[in-house]
Design a binder for these strands. Structure first.
Lengths: 211, 211, 211, 211
DNA sequence: CATGAATGAGGATTCATTCAT
DNA sequence: CATGAATGAATCCTCATTCAT
């Protein structure tokens, strides 16, 4: 996807190998331990660089954390999904599955948890994450629902509300046990089952009587 | 539980008073700042006792935190709600409203956030909270749904799943903006609106055809 | 002199034994090594306390340094000297001697040097020291000179200027070699000789012709 | 001076150019911030070279600082002043003025302050500066005074002492307020006034009675 | 039991110095 | 020769914990 030519030099500003290496190491540590629990020493070790090097690329712990969150925002934002042309059942299933896969991504630590945890002390980060992750998914679905309503395939008063209802219903029995460490991250199959149930409930509720 | 006579004078009541005082102060600080962000000094100040006294009642910071979480588990666990005899609409509305009021309780800090944040490092606490708070609410609803299904008022395959769907649908547009500091805690009226919508969706989906 | 009753408790605010102990140790280190050269660890060792204890009594390194300078200001400010009733020769000799003894006090490090060194970065401290130490000595002499002029014993246009001229002439060959580590602190006898010469020069210049 | 063509081969001249460039940048930083306060990074930036280059020309921070002080010693040493043939009044005024201009040179930072500050930890530097700066000025005046005494124009017992008295009297109300950041560097006019007063005092004291 | 002074290990950050390019 | 990325020791400061009173 990234078709950037990337000729020229690779300045340290944005894209050096070392910078990525640090971000990768830091992500793991921050997501596992939280902002306060993560120490710069641990991060340096995880990234395979010296403590001093961290400060060559990021002015301080906050800046490094912000960079991580920004990256997560980008990575977890809505992916290019072509649902517009699909029927409601397929569209809902596809969106729900994709969203849940992102939320429960098992690759070490959870961004939702980490950002949620710090949101009281760093409200800007909380807002940024919310705006870039849940809001984009919910918004995409709301838009889709509006076209379906216009086309007469669904009957919904408040599409934003309905979109949120569906997305949250997709979490059902999976997300909380995962986030509270009661169960390991759900498999794609488990997600599929729960998403399917949410889809059926949603359509049963919002499909026009005759259909 | 602890029926030990606790010789000497210093009856348990005296202990308990101070203990409660500490717990109260510590709760605020922990919920506002998180486990790592809270310092024992701050807690002592908030509780109005000396730092040393903290260690008379709790062996260390972890133990104090655990006691707080335990208390929150108890306080936020399901309250005595008599829904068994009610019709589905009333029961769902009442449960949904009560659950959301607990989740979004504005009185300083959020327990969900705080426990979720630490769950990776203290899985036992995460499990305990999950088991005592969401699981009891979801379970209560699941039980109710089962009776309704038996009575023929509802048609549901998996009542545990359906219960979770409903409870999460009640969060819809309210919980995430609150927890990510995008919006202040929702009012009871806002909650009522969203819960009402979830209730109607749920019943539309799970009520038997003829009804 | 300090007639304060000092009953009551000795709060940590101003006068505890530990605070004095820290100030004493810190004075040596700061005066020997300068503000930047002195480390809190070294200070703690010199004071015989732990690093943490330093921060119980002083909020940070700056505050500790300021306290030291303040103390030096007080200790080096003009001492109670009764010169008003004396003839010019005695008065000048006594003041000059006392001032030089303060400036060249050999007890480890020099406050003048240390404060002068930091004055560019902490102008307030520089001003405070100047106002409390040299300015008070110079001012005391200027006042005395004015009474002598009024009494007709001296003829001076600008007494502030003349006072400074005398005080600095007293340094002559002693202060710079001392401060630049060319020679050890001068003895009282050496000071007396140089002060005597300054006195004779001063009087030869400012005594009215006939006398 | 440097008329070398500066082609290719990197002759010493090229080195010297860069070396001078470094010294110039380092001087400003050292004099503004002091030895400890100055960082090699800041110096590199001020000199417009890379940090690594610093170490090509100077083995370490100490060596660079020593080179700076040496240069200051040279620059602030007595300038070629032809006072031998002049009358005492002119000679004193000219010397006093020139010395004070050097001491209070406002072009960023003060060498006296910086060297004085470090003299306890680097006594050699202190001695070097003292020997090259104040001592040369004082010495030059002492020599001059001796010729005047021989010629019968002045009556002075100890010419070294008298020279120091005069030079310090020239500082009077100007130097300390400047060095302690109480007042900005004095203007040439202010210096002239104070030097004039010192000259008159000095001559009034040391001119033979009849004259 | 209650206190708060004292501790020292640990964390974030800076900076002189090195070295591969 | 010139560079600047990388290092790790050292610094300031915080905080959980202990202990004498």
């Amino acid at each position: 996807m990234n078709a950037a030519p990337n000729l020229q030099v690779q300045s340290r500003d944005d894209d050096s190998a070392k910078r990525r290496q640090i971000l990768e190491g830091a992500r793991r540590v921050f997501m596992d331990l939280g902002f306060d629990g993560a120490s710069m020493g641990e991060i340096a070790r995880a990234a395979g660089v010296s403590k001093g090097t961290l400060y060559v690329y990021f002015t301080d712990k906050n800046a490094l954390f912000e960079a991580i969150v920004e990256k997560e925002c980008h990575d977890h934002g809505i992916t290019a999904l072509d649902i517009e042309s699909k029927d409601a059942g397929s569209a809902l299933r596809q969106l729900g599955q994709a969203y849940m896969e992102v939320l429960c991504r098992p690759e070490g630590g959870s961004a939702v948890r980490t950002v949620m945890a710090i949101a009281e002390r760093m409200p800007d980060l909380g807002r940024q994450y919310y705006g870039n992750v849940p809001a984009t998914w919910f918004g995409k679905l709301a838009d889709y629902l509006r076209t379906q309503v216009k086309a007469g395939h669904l009957v919904i008063e408040n599409c934003d509300l309905a979109a949120a209802q569906f997305m949250l219903a997709c979490q059902a029995t999976l997300f909380l046990p995962f986030i509270f460490q009661v169960r390991p991250p759900p498999s794609s199959e488990q997600i599929a089952t729960v998403v399917d149930s949410a889809t059926r409930m949603f359509l049963a509720a919002y499909r026009p009587p005759g259909k």
